[in-house]
Amino acid sequence: MATGASGAGKECAGMSRHSEKAREALMDAAEELFAVHGIDGVSNRRITEHAGTANHSAIKYHFGTRDDLLNALIRRAITEVSRFRAGLAVSEDRDGGLREVVTHRVLPWIYYLSDQPAPYCRAQFLYQVRGYPGLSNIGTELLSGDELQADLVGRTRAELEGIPASVIRARAGILGYMTLGICAEFERQVADGAREATWDELGYFLVDAIVGMVAAPSTAKSDFLDFGDPPFG
């Protein structure tokens, strides 16, 4: 009896691993196709075929709806970004300044984008999905319980004392979309062989640019710009 139970357990574990591999293959295929053709330009059937499965109902089986698939892709990305962010050192005396805050916001995304095999598509996928209905707040939702993230955001406000909160929010929104666009274009050039994959250099270039733009004096007569939360935290 024990032997039979053990054998059944191993069989279930094997099925679970197979199911997880199939799920990951579908996500990788969807991410690649969405990056190139857009969210609405790719059918579920095309995704399953690109993933190498003959089961055209695989997406419904593993995820449910198209929105559920997109949510799974974004959650996978943010989980990996959070892992990279947890590996960055933070000044214990809280004297790292605005640059440290921006570094912890930007570099984990750069590390995530650079940590991918060919074909290079992650930044292009995120750029495609940046304004897709229902996904705009998922980054905020997933990071809301992150104590490190909350501490860094608190430091941002302290560093920018004197600049209206609405201006900071608008600048963050602009910079979020701008950063995604720059990363997507850089990724396309890398994929085409037109540029070497020097992601670290791109990351620190973005940190420099964002620090300067966020901290610039506010001279507008009114606070009229509101681009919402920056995409994906």
Rank of each mutant, 00 (worst) to 15 (best):
M1K: 13
M1I: 09
M1H: 09
M1R: 12
S6A: 14
S6N: 13
S6V: 08
G7Y: 10
G9R: 15
E11T: 15
C12N: 15
A13R: 15
S19P: 02
S19L: 09
K21P: 03
A22S: 13
A22F: 01
R23T: 04
R23Y: 04
E24Y: 05
D28E: 14
D28V: 08
D28I: 03
V36L: 05
G38Y: 02
G38M: 10
G41D: 09
V42F: 06
S43K: 07
S43C: 05
N44F: 07
R45V: 08
R45S: 08
R46M: 08
R46H: 12
I47D: 05
H50I: 00
T53Q: 09
A54K: 14
S57K: 15
G64L: 08
T65H: 06
D67A: 11
L69G: 05
L70H: 04
L70T: 00
N71D: 12
A72P: 08
L73P: 01
R75T: 11
A77I: 04
A77K: 01
I78E: 01
I78G: 00
T79W: 02
E80K: 07
S82A: 11
R83S: 05
R85W: 00
A86C: 10
A86E: 12
A89S: 14
E92N: 07
D95L: 10
R99F: 02
E100K: 06
V101P: 10
V101K: 01
T103V: 04
R105T: 04
V106F: 07
V106E: 03
I110N: 06
I110A: 01
S114R: 11
Q116I: 02
Q116G: 03
P119D: 00
Y120C: 01
R122I: 02
Q124F: 05
F125W: 13
Q128G: 00
G134E: 03
L135C: 11
L135H: 10
I138E: 12
I138L: 15
L143F: 15
G145V: 03
G145D: 13
Q149H: 15
L152Y: 03
L152D: 06
V153A: 13
T156D: 05
A158H: 14
E161M: 10
E161I: 05
G162K: 07
G162P: 04
P164C: 02
S166Q: 14
V167I: 14
A170Y: 06
A170V: 09
A170K: 08
R171C: 07
A172K: 05
I174F: 15
L175Y: 00
G176R: 00
T179Q: 12
T179G: 03
L180N: 01
G181S: 13
G181N: 07
E185K: 08
E185S: 10
E187N: 07
Q189N: 10
Q189C: 12
A191I: 04
D192P: 08
A194D: 15
R195N: 07
W199M: 01
L202Y: 04
G203H: 04
Y204S: 08
Y204G: 05
Y204I: 00
F205D: 07
L206A: 09
V207R: 12
V207N: 13
V207G: 14
A209Y: 06
V211G: 02
G212H: 12
V214I: 14
A216W: 09
P217H: 11
S218L: 01
K221M: 10
S222Q: 13
S222R: 14
F224M: 15
G228M: 09
P231G: 02
